[in-house]
Structure formats: structure tokens, C-alpha cells
Simulated scan of single mutants.
Amino acid sequence: MSVPETQPTALVLTALPLEYDAVRAYVEKRRERVHRDGTRVEIGQLPSTTWHIAIAELGVGAGRAAALTTLLISWLNPEAVFFVGVAGSLKDDVGIGDVVIGTQVYEIHGGKQTPEGFQARPKAHSASHALVQSARSAVRDMADVRAHFMPIATGDVVLADAESEIAGYLRENYNDAGAIEMEGSGAAHAAHLNGQLDALVIRGISDRADAGKRDADAAGSQELAAKQAAAVTFAVLRKHRPRQGSSASSDPEEGPQRRGDGGATYGGDHIDFRGGTFYGPVTGKTDGRR
């Protein structure tokens, strides 16, 4: 009797409740899991795909996103990580309701203060080539989404004044960025430090990062932007193929499982040789179940 492969996991992260709700609408058969430190995720299925989807609402800020993304990667062993939500536009041609797919994510606060002024020292995290390619393919079929492939700026600031000092700083040092948000660089950095892990930041535009932000938010622009970003995210996952031979388990109660060279799966305190070949003695234990 053949044993089905465990399914690959995509980790989809948000900062705000409305972003989480937009993502959650795409995930079926959800069940909640709680890490020993109290961090919660819901894990479910993306219909008609092999993807398990783990979703989490992390709260605001790049530092928080980096720490919790690192924890979730270690716990859930995903092969793709997305940070999804709303952002402010930094370009005249990137409008409310548009979606920016981050080809790079900038950390905007690094630099050196000198007597001559502040000198920026930009740090950038490149997006996964495979995910960007999947996104380019996916959005061609989405007539109701206007997508832009551009860098995204991350900073611990809510920008609501286009004439402010920070707005000028962005124009001078990050003038190719299409959007500004608060968490993407933290998640991207955590994914980078974990090696061969595909990562992508997808942001729906909810305002123009100017004095009209409050009015735009009151008109429902954040809900629209979150829904558009979520729609693109799951269109990307429907295009993106898991790595060949992927068998990462998304069930934290079982722990990460991997397929060994001989076809066995191992995880926690057990090894399953069904469907594999083993040569040599085995010493093991049983809990009485069959």
C-alpha cells in the first residue's frame, strides 16, 4: 500500500486583522495550532492544489516581523513565505487598489549621521526569482488587478505627509520604490537567513502616503487593498510549483518531516519506512498503535 507524500507548506503572514481576514478567506479546512511560546497560526488547504497554507497575524513593525517569522519558519518548515497586506503608494502611477509585488525590499533606516548630514546605507533583500516569475504569469490572467513589479520600502513609520522630511529622504535615496510599509524587510530578512527559502512581499495600495490617508482609509481603501493583495498571493501559489520531492509537513504537532534518501520519512521520535528501503538492523519502540 502506497503512503501519500506529506504536503508542502506556504507561510502567509499579515500584520493587521483586516489583512488576515482577506487571506483567511482563501484557506479551507483550517485548524488552529499554538506554539509553546503562545504564537498562533491557522493551517489549512488551498483548494485544488497540494499546498498547505499556514496563516498568522503578527502585528506591526519590521523587528517583530523578523523575530516571529524566524520562529514560524523553524516551527513549520515552509518552503515559501509571503508577507501580505496594505501599503502607501510612492508613485503617481501606482493608485489605490493597485498591487505592488516587491522585486526587492528596502530597509530604509540604515545609515550614518555625519556633520554633513545623514548618509543612507541602503540594505535590500531580493525577492525569490521563482515567485516573481509565478506572479508575472498569474497577474496576466487577473483582469481586475493592476499590478506593479517594483521595490518596496520598509520603515517603522506611517507616512501621511508627502512633503515631510522622510518623504523627501525616500525620493532621494529610494526613488524606484513603489510603496512603503512596515514589516516586509523583517520577514524577507528572516527568510534570507534560513537559506533556500522562497519569499515575496505583496502589498495592496490603500493610500498615497499623503494627507489624504485618513479619508482613504475611512472610505474602505484598506479592505479593498487587502483583498487585492490576497487575491494576487493565492493566484501566485496556484502557479508556483513546490520543489521537486518536497514533503515538508505543516503539522506542528508532528514536527517537521522530511523524506530520506531511501524513501523513509522521519520526524519527532519516529521513522516510517513504508514506501522506502532500509538495509541493516533497526532498534525502535512502539506505543501499541497500528
Results as ranks from 00 to 15, higher is better:
158 V>Q: 05
152 I>N: 08
127 A>N: 00
166 I>W: 01
158 V>N: 10
163 E>D: 10
141 D>Q: 12
154 T>N: 15
165 E>A: 09
128 S>M: 03
128 S>K: 00
157 V>G: 09
167 A>W: 02
139 V>M: 08
134 S>F: 01
140 R>E: 12
159 L>S: 02
119 Q>C: 04
160 A>F: 04
162 A>T: 06
165 E>I: 04
167 A>N: 07
158 V>I: 02
153 A>V: 14
148 H>L: 00
121 R>G: 03
140 R>F: 03
127 A>Q: 05
137 S>L: 11
156 D>R: 10
144 D>G: 14
131 L>H: 05
144 D>F: 06
169 Y>W: 05
157 V>I: 14
143 A>M: 06
143 A>D: 06
125 H>T: 09
126 S>R: 04
141 D>F: 07
150 M>H: 15
143 A>V: 08
164 S>Q: 02
150 M>A: 13
155 G>R: 11
151 P>A: 15
162 A>L: 09
138 A>T: 14
162 A>S: 08
150 M>Y: 15
121 R>F: 03
167 A>Q: 06
130 A>F: 00
159 L>T: 05
135 A>T: 04
130 A>C: 04
163 E>S: 03
160 A>Q: 08
154 T>A: 15
120 A>D: 08
167 A>V: 07
131 L>D: 12
151 P>G: 14
164 S>K: 03
131 L>K: 04
136 R>T: 07
135 A>M: 04
163 E>N: 02
146 R>K: 13
159 L>P: 05
156 D>T: 09
150 M>E: 14
127 A>T: 00
128 S>L: 00
128 S>I: 02
142 M>L: 14
129 H>V: 06
166 I>K: 12
160 A>L: 08
127 A>Y: 01
132 V>H: 07
131 L>P: 06
164 S>E: 00
123 K>E: 05
163 E>R: 07
119 Q>T: 15
161 D>T: 13
125 H>M: 11
133 Q>N: 14
157 V>E: 04
166 I>P: 00
137 S>H: 13
137 S>G: 10
157 V>P: 09
146 R>A: 10
147 A>T: 04
129 H>Y: 05
163 E>T: 09
140 R>P: 01
136 R>D: 01
121 R>E: 12
123 K>C: 01
148 H>G: 10
126 S>K: 08
126 S>D: 12
152 I>W: 08
158 V>E: 01
132 V>D: 07
168 G>E: 00
133 Q>Y: 01
123 K>I: 10
